[in-house]
């Protein structure tokens, strides 16, 4: 009991600190690739700090749902972060929720975010909510197929078990099924975190925005909570990819030496994945909304092929 609490607090601190860092790294890398200087890696921290100290404006039309949403988005993302192995195979809350709970808790956050978008009565909020729910709905089957593939080779939906099984056969990611599942999940990651070619996180243009449209009326601490929650969600999904497919450096215990080594490896793996995301973002243009289903259909087929190849090879 005490052990679980201590581990949770350590992982929570790690989660809260690393999440804006990853966002900052991605933004900076992207800027450099586009031959811009970029705002610097520390900018997301400065943004959050500033937003948390500002006052805010609540729309006249909004109800308590609007005010509850930031807390729920932040809370679900943070809770999910405690179920996923970051630096040690043994995640603090992994016994209490596996990969299915992770997917559904993130969906709970999304559910309220979409309600918050519609609560303001603005057309932008509705537009964002409608698109977000649509994209996530068609991303879900692809995600579940890829997750099923990993769960079947690990013989569990428990994330710590999945990481442990990956550690025990560390070159498994070279198997065709794992490569296909990874590609499928990578596309889903792009869609779920709202990145080009699905959504553009840097835009406020009504024709293209999805995630930002829902947040349009949020300001101050509420906006900070939602932004922080979104970056934690991004970190969680990236961690899911790096730690279930490439378990290198995952510490098998919660000893300080193992954890610090694990942390170094973890940050390196995140950096590599961030590079992949940045490359995709810079080399692609945003897709038209109605072309996104085709991209996600590719992810679905990759997942299905991954499953079939688990019993062919």
């Amino acid at each position: 009991m005490i052990e679980v609490l201590v581990k949770s607090v350590i992982q929570l601190i790690l989660l809260l600190l690393v999440a804006p860092l990853v966002t900052g790294i991605i933004r900076t890398l992207k800027a450099r690739l586009q031959t811009r200087r970029g705002p610097g890696i520390g900018q997301p921290y400065r943004d959050l700090f500033k937003l948390l100290r500002k006052g805010m404006v609540i729309p006249n039309t909004a109800s308590w749902i609007f005010s509850a949403t930031p807390y729920i988005v932040f809370g679900t993302a943070a809770l999910v972060g405690l179920m996923i192995p970051m630096t040690a195979t043994d995640a603090p809350l992994s016994l209490f929720g596996g990969v299915l709970a992770v997917v559904y808790l993130l969906a709970l956050g999304r559910f309220f975010l979409a309600l918050g978008g519609l609560d303001t009565g603005s057309s932008f909020g509705g537009l964002g909510s409608s698109r977000e729910m649509t994209i996530s709905a068609i991303a879900e089957p692809a995600m579940m197929l890829a997750i099923f593939t990993v769960a079947l080779s690990a013989n569990s939906t428990n994330l710590s078990e999945m990481a442990r099984s990956a550690v025990s056969q560390s070159w498994r990611f070279l198997a065709p099924s794992q490569i296909l599942a990874f590609s499928g999940l990578f596309i889903v990651l792009i869609a779920e975190t709202g990145r080009i070619p699905v959504d553009n996180p840097a835009t406020h243009l009504e024709l293209t925005m999805i995630h930002e449209a829902m947040l349009l009326e949020y300001s101050g601490p509420y906006l900070a909570l939602i932004e922080w929650g979104a970056s934690i969600k991004q970190l969680v999904l990236m961690t899911l990819l790096v730690n279930t497919f490439f378990p290198f450096g995952l510490s098998s215990s919660w000893m300080v030496s193992g954890l610090s080594l694990g942390l170094v490896f973890y940050l390196l793996k995140l950096l590599l994945l961030a590079c992949c995301i940045v490359l995709v973002e810079t080399t692609n243009a945003k897709l038209r909304l109605f072309r996104v289903p085709e991209l996600l259909a590719v992810a679905f087929i990759l997942g299905a092929l991954a499953l079939i190849s688990t019993f062919l090879f």
């Binding site: 969906a107 979409a114 609560d119 909510s129 879900e140 089957p141 593939t149």
Partner: peptide, 28 residues
């Protein structure tokens, strides 16, 4: 597994539908 992924699709679409049902009826 195909049935499982369709269950995932169903769940996500149901969430979309109830965002609509609740928000359009009760919010804004």
């Amino acid at each position: 597994p195909i049935a499982g992924s369709m269950l995932a699709l169903t769940g996500a679409l149901a969430a979309a539908c109830f965002v609509k049902a609740f928000a359009i009826t009760f919010l804004a």
